[in-house]
């Protein structure tokens, strides 16, 4: 698909730690069109951060890409040298991180940190870069930019710092912004503001976004496509509508159920997904979610479920979708 900005194919990535091989990404394929927003949803350890870091080319020992490919705008990222990757970082792909409190260097004023990338990548001189930085932080909603640029990160609140991170990420107008849990460390009202800002910037600059989160609610009104990840694989993929209303995977349903409802009565408890996340050192033979699945069948423990096409872009990896082929002998584990 020539139209795709990013295409990840059969990616396999493992961390080789003293106690064995951790299969963090196991055969993941996903693609992203220009200007689209892809949500990677999953719990801690599902591989969503590793995947987004891999797109950035941040794979370093003990991590290793074992197979598959990451193609970005005609460039094969997993075969580029460190030097080549450095050239596209910041200009073509940039990143917003989870914790804005620690993602800015505490010993430099934020102006310096924004100008740095402008001067390096856009070859601006200090004066034009500073002027551009002023406009940038103004556009992410920071008032009194002239004074603010000379201040240090500790003089800003968490939400403000995340705005600055966004300004840095957008400085060179990249084609793709990877936001790795951009709102997890923020309080709820700030979360909404940051997401709104990201959407607004997307409208203006037209870049594509990959946003990772463990909170389905966050991505609902932002994403064009959602990929639900569990145990290093994508278990379900589709549009927001597909995922929220037509979900065909027990894990996705669990995630949606676990969102606290505004309409819930006082005595109603939150609905968790029972069980604990996978130990990725010994990944299960079959479906990674099988040990926690209420509808687990014998085959789920033995064989990986293939993707079933539910709708035009809706795919789900669950044996239940192929139930006509198997007798449904549900065993509760």
């Amino acid at each position: 698909m020539a139209n795709d900005l990013l295409e990840i194919k059969n990616l396999r990535l493992s961390f080789f730690v003293p106690s064995g091989e951790v299969k963090a990404i196991n055969n993941v394929s996903v693609s992203l069109k220009r200007g689209d927003v892809l949500g990677l949803v999953g719990e801690s350890g599902s591989g969503k951060s590793v995947l987004s870091h891999a797109v950035m080319g941040f794979v370093s020992p003990p991590g290793k890409i074992l197979g598959g490919s990451i193609d970005f705008n005609g460039l094969r990222i997993n075969e580029m040298t460190e030097k080549e990757k450095r050239i596209i970082r910041g200009t073509e792909i940039s990143m917003i991180f989870q914790d804005p409190m620690t993602s800015l260097n505490p010993v430099y004023p934020i102006g310096t940190q924004i100008c740095e990338v402008l001067m390096l990548k856009n070859k601006m001189n200090r004066k034009t870069a500073w002027y551009k930085a002023e406009q940038l932080i103004k556009s992410v909603g920071i008032i009194d930019p002239q004074r603010r640029l000379t201040q240090y990160p500790h003089e800003f609140s968490g939400g403000m710092r995340q705005r600055i991170m966004i300004a840095i990420a957008l400085a060179c107008e990249p084609r793709l912004v990877i936001a790795d849990e951009p709102t997890t460390a923020l309080d709820v009202t700030t979360q909404a503001q940051i997401l709104e800002l990201m959407l607004e910037m997307k409208e203006k600059k037209g870049m594509a976004i990959i946003i990772t989160t463990h909170n389905l609610g966050i991505v609902a009104n932002m994403c064009d496509r959602i990929a639900v990840m569990y145990g290093g694989t994508i278990v379900e993929y589709g549009t927001v509508m597909d995922i929220f209303y037509e979900s065909r995977h027990e894990y996705t349903k669990g995630l949606i159920n676990s969102i606290p409802k505004l309409t819930a009565k006082k005595e109603e408890k939150l609905v968790p997904i029972e069980g604990t996340p996978l130990n990725m050192l010994v990944p299960p033979l079959g479906c990674p979610f099988a040990p926690r699945c209420k509808l687990c069948m014998a085959i789920c423990l033995k064989k990986r479920p293939p993707y079933t096409q539910i709708a035009s872009v809706h795919y789900s990896a669950c044996w239940l979708n192929q139930k006509e082929e198997f007798e449904r002998d549900a065993i509760n584990v």
Partner: peptide, 14 residues
Amino acid sequence: GQDYIRTARAKGLS
């Protein structure tokens, strides 16, 4: 190992 070093790498600095 700090986050801001990762940020610096994400900026594409040498």
